[in-house]
Design a protein around this nucleic acid. Sequence first.
DNA 1: TTGTTTTAAGCTTAATTTAAGGTTCCCCAT
DNA 2: ATGGGGAACCTTAAATTAAGCTTAAAACAA
Lengths: 242, 242
Amino acid sequence: MWILLVEDEKQLANSLKRGLEEEGYVVEVQHDGEEAELQGLVNDYDIVILDWRLPNRDGKEILEHWRKEDRNFPVLMLTALGDLDHKVSGLDAGADDYMSKPFSFDELLARIRALSRRSADISNTEIVKIGPIEVDARRHNVTVGGISLTLRQKEFVLLELLMTHLGTVFSKTQIAERVWGSAYYVSDNTIEATISTLRQKLNDTFEDIDTYKLGKNDQIIETIRGAGYRFNIDLFKDHKDS
Amino acid sequence: MWILLVEDEKQLANSLKRGLEEEGYVVEVQHDGEEAELQGLVNDYDIVILDWRLPNRDGKEILEHWRKEDRNFPVLMLTALGDLDHKVSGLDAGADDYMSKPFSFDELLARIRALSRRSADISNTEIVKIGPIEVDARRHNVTVGGISLTLRQKEFVLLELLMTHLGTVFSKTQIAERVWGSAYYVSDNTIEATISTLRQKLNDTFEDIDTYKLGKNDQIIETIRGAGYRFNIDLFKDHKDS
DNA sequence: TTGTTTTAAGCTTAATTTAAGGTTCCCCAT
DNA sequence: ATGGGGAACCTTAAATTAAGCTTAAAACAA
């Protein structure tokens, strides 16, 4: 889950970012309204959290522009306490939900979950199931043929990314950005090592189940040399579960 | 797609180069402004990414010079965050888009795609189809009569180059530059060997399909002795697909 | 501490280039 | 015309280089 957080109070923004990251979300923070507007036009976030009062440009303008350009990720707007006017105008402009400051972090989480459930986008299903592999984004849990396996944060987010974008090849650069949050400072090897342990955990679990057997050369996560990685949907093509 | 990246921060430049190459672009990096200016005067890049603050010469001067000399490739300028003055002066000087640092790699990709779409040049369609041969630049994938064939990076870029410039004969020097990124260090034989394996893969796949049969002496990639290579459009002239 | 993440190093595999000998084509002298 | 001879090009296989994998150890964070 890729979230854009637009909030100019840096301290608040950072603590929210940290909290959300602990929950397994990948969070980009933008303090400046104008910049945020561009980012939203260009990136397909799963959710945007948008403060209504911003330097340079206000939340409403931004949101209207996005909606005019058919950017239809769910938007959760943040307003000052008691600011009912803004609430109404925001929902009119196309916001999907609102929250007034101050709010509890748990409430924020709950609303984010609700929004991602409601959203039409496939990538926001709470539970993704492909063949015997089941990813529960909410509980942060993966099972293969009913057996649960313990993945670490990065492994989990990486698997989730690949499984919610079937057919897409993600380059290392894109993976760095969407799993680690930034393309800089993440070495190739870090990603390779994570892929490696993730594959091992998946394979080990497949050995323990009876319902599906992997062939000798079957790779659940394919490597496309020079280009990136992709979830190998072909392995489960016939085997329609859901 | 041939891209010139002018950026003096070497670390950033290299990571962008790598990321773009993973996407199948051919990227030339130039750290020095003066050098970059010359290269832009001489080569027909598909897109130029130009940092605004450079040693020796600043982005604006370079761009103005190019535009005065009718170099009209799209230019995406990079500015420091919040540098609105530069943004305006850059767009005035003839930049087609701008992005402020730091930016996400996906955002860069999106903007490059947008620019190449916008550009008048025919060569920028995402999917090229000629007769039964289909090249999908985005997914990095070639099919002949529906059968997908696995090309290596160099083979792919070479085929793409020829198919997006129908009728044009490319000399070995030009191919070296636009497939390998630089004419130095690439021997003629390297190119010949690549052409050879590419032809074989194409021919093999044509054997497997029923919709189109190659004649005994038909060459999909023609050799023009002493001049270079060209995609043989005549083979598919009657056979109008699209 | 304890668990997670990153780095390091050697290894494996695939892509790319080089090398070497073979074709084909063209020019020129016969 | 015709048959060397050379240049340009083709084709394979071998050598080289690069990309990716794996494991353990180091660094970091809770």
